[in-house]
C-alpha cells in the first residue's frame, strides 16, 4: 500500500474490453477509467458482468479483445493472475475464499508470502490491517474456518491488503452481512482509500456503495450504460427505479 494520497494519474484504464466463459461473451466493449486515489463502484443487476469485469482485470478470465492498463503503462491483459498481483493490483474475491484450515495470521501472511515487494512491507501492512480490523488481531491464532461472516470478510480484505496493492478490486464485500457489519466494511474501504489505495468496488448494495464512491458505473448485460459521480447516480431517477425500488 504504497500510495500517498490522491493523485491525478490513471490507476486503471479499460478500453473495449470483451471477456467471457467458453462460447459465452459476458462483457461487450467495456470502457472505464479510474484515477489514482479514487473509490469507484460498479453496480448492476445479477448477471450484468460485474464480477467478470473484476476477474478479467485480475487475469482470472481471459481478455478476448480490448486492453486493460494499470498505472498508466502496465498492460495487464494476457498476464497471469500471479503476474498481475505483482503489478500491485490486489483482488478480494467474491465469497471471501479464505483458507479455513489456516489461522487468521497465516491467511494474512499468505497474502504477502509470494510477493517480494509485499514481503518487504508485510509488518507495516499487518499493523495497518490490525488497526483497520482490531477483531482480526484478537483472532490471530484462530482458524479462519471458525470466523463469523463479517470477520471472514475483514480477513479477505486484510489478506488482499497484505499484497501491498496500489489498486484494490473488491467483489461484493457486503454479501450476506448484517447492516452494522456492512457499515464497518464500507468504513474500512474508505479508510483504505484515504491511505492512498485506489479502490474498485463491485456491489449490489447500491445505496451505501454509491454514498462512499467518488464515481460509479452502471453495468447492464455486459455493457456500461451509465457513469457519473456517486451522488449524481444516487439522484438519477432511472438508477433509483432500477436499483433502489424508488
Amino acid at each position: 500500500m504504497s500510495g500517498s494520497g490522491r493523485g491525478a494519474g490513471s490507476a486503471l484504464r479499460v478500453e473495449g474490453l470483451r471477456a467471457g466463459y467458453g462460447k459465452i461473451t459476458v462483457l461487450w466493449d467495456v470502457d472505464l477509467h479510474v484515477d489514482e486515489g479514487e473509490l469507484v463502484t460498479i453496480i448492476g443487476a445479477n448477471g450484468a458482468g460485474k464480477t467478470t469485469l473484476l476477474r478479467a482485470i485480475s487475469g482470472l478470465v481471459p481478455v478476448r479483445a480490448g486492453s486493460v492498463t494499470a498505472f498508466g503503462a502496465r498492460r495487464l491483459a494476457g498476464l497471469s493472475p500471479a503476474r498481475i498481483v505483482r503489478s500491485q493490483v490486489g483482488h478480494v474475491p467474491e465469497g471471501r475464499q479464505l483458507f479455513p484450515l489456516m489461522t487468521v495470521r497465516e491467511n494474512l501472511e499468505s497474502g504477502a508470502e509470494y510477493l517480494p515487494h509485499a514481503r518487504a512491507s508485510a509488518a507495516r501492512n499487518r499493523e495497518f490491517v490490525y488497526g483497520l480490523f482490531p477483531r482480526l488481531a484478537e483472532r490471530a491464532p484462530q482458524l479462519a474456518g471458525t470466523l463469523s461472516g463479517g470477520e471472514r470478510q475483514m480477513l479477505a480484505i486484510g489478506r488482499a491488503l497484505m499484497s501491498d496493492p496500489k489498486l484494490l478490486l473488491v467483489d461484493e464485500p457486503s454479501l450476506g452481512l448484517a447492516p452494522a457489519l456492512v457499515r464497518t466494511v464500507f468504513a474500512a474501504l474508505q479508510e483504505i482509500r484515504a491511505r492512498g489505495v485506489t479502490v474498485v468496488l463491485v456491489e449490489q448494495n447500491v445505496q451505501q456503495s454509491l454514498r462512499i464512491s467518488d464515481r460509479a458505473y452502471v453495468l447492464e448485460n455486459g455493457e456500461v450504460v451509465k457513469a457519473g459521480s456517486g451522488a449524481a447516480l444516487l439522484g438519477d431517477p432511472e438508477v433509483r427505479a432500477a436499483y433502489l425500488s424508488m
Binding site: 493472475p81 500471479a82 498481475i84 498481483v85 489456516m102 497465516e106 508470502e113 509470494y114 488482499a160
Partner: peptide, 23 residues
C-alpha cells in the same frame, strides 16, 4: 513457502493465483 502455496492451490486455485502463486 510451498506449504501455504500447496494449501492455496488445493483450496482454490484462482485465489492462489491472485495471491501471487503460480499454480
Amino acid at each position: 513457502r510451498l506449504r501455504s502455496a500447496f494449501t492455496a492451490i488445493r483450496t482454490n486455485e484462482e485465489v492462489a493465483g491472485v495471491m501471487g502463486v503460480n499454480p
